[in-house]
Design a protein around this nucleic acid. Sequence first.
DNA 1: GCTTTGAGTGTACGAACGTTCACTCATTTG
DNA 2: CAAATGAGTGAACGTTCGTACACTCAAAGC
Lengths: 207, 207
Amino acid sequence: MTVTRIEQKERTRRAILDAALRLCEGSSLVALSLRQVAKEVGIVPTAFYRHFDSLESLGLALVDESFVSLRAMLRDVRRSDPAFADIVDSSVDVLSRHVKEEHDHFAFIARERTAGPPAVRHSIRHEIELCERELAADLARFPGTDVWSSEDLRVLSNLIVTAMVATAEQILLAAGRPEAEARVAQTARTQLRMVLIGALRWRSSTD
Amino acid sequence: MTVTRIEQKERTRRAILDAALRLCEGSSLVALSLRQVAKEVGIVPTAFYRHFDSLESLGLALVDESFVSLRAMLRDVRRSDPAFADIVDSSVDVLSRHVKEEHDHFAFIARERTAGPPAVRHSIRHEIELCERELAADLARFPGTDVWSSEDLRVLSNLIVTAMVATAEQILLAAGRPEAEARVAQTARTQLRMVLIGALRWRSSTD
DNA sequence: GCTTTGAGTGTACGAACGTTCACTCATTTG
DNA sequence: CAAATGAGTGAACGTTCGTACACTCAAAGC
């Protein structure tokens, strides 16, 4: 019991983050009230201000936290299991596993990306742009892509990220129905293959 | 002045729809209050109930209305201008023109699709699914697609619709900055070509 | 051990919320 | 022309909202 003081504060902070994540599921941050969060946590409304100075800064903290989950997923995708013959199979597999494991974080990103408070929307968009740039860098490391322009890489990774965001949304929607999940994953695999093959062919036919 | 009575009612109804569309821009339907809408329209809160029995049914009316705009766009895409050499060019052109013209409707769909009240979300998802099925039927009419399975068509049209929804979101985001709009359109054209070529190649290599 | 600190409390406020109800009064109807 | 209709009014209700302020009382620091 040496660090009890800051430890307890951190515990309450976590409880607030979790409560907010839980409560705005099914609506949005913009429809959430400070009092609801406080009641859910079990503290008095004014105590909220000891941790965040507004719901918006709470939202920004949730963005940070959610993208920690998302980046953990990207890390897993990157060092894809060599047991998988196909990078597409392994990537979609990692995606669907992470999305289900960190359901709340991915749902938060998907929802607040378009409907959150302006600052939250902006922050999420920025993070996703960074992901696109990272993906473009990854793609550039592939054999045979050295002839591509950076613009082509950008366009391709934008398309892939868009498709994967949509896939994540559909996985969330199918959550708990294994056959629906499998269907979404199968669709995502096919789409990824179409895109990759198309990108290669398109390049070699226009360079 | 023969139809003044119902005419006036319709006018107020329109004013409510417009006010709601305007007010929930930048947040969401779930963060909208009946009183805000009434104030914006210039009627007393209780008068709202003469036209809708809840904000949710207002939301459903806005979904209907927004998809009238969207379907008008699809109609334009379908009878694509023969002056355009490329169907991709003409489709993206029609898309960006309609999205800008009916900015509010497309923004509404994009936003409430993930963040609206459950019934609204569900309704939008249903409408988008119908669009996907229509697109699949259109694609089936293309020469050379007769060997495709209906599942392949479904997967492809899902991918295309996803990419176009994302494009619409980016056009909305770039609204008012012509160079940004042009960039989004150019990206969309490239992506559509990658997808179409990839789908063709993928099919012919696995049938 | 005495003092300081700060997470959490409790009360209180004015504002906005959804909904109720009884109403007005111009238009429509018969 | 009298009666019925129905869009819009206005006051009132019980809630919930964000926030201000003065407070408690363990843990942390000296």
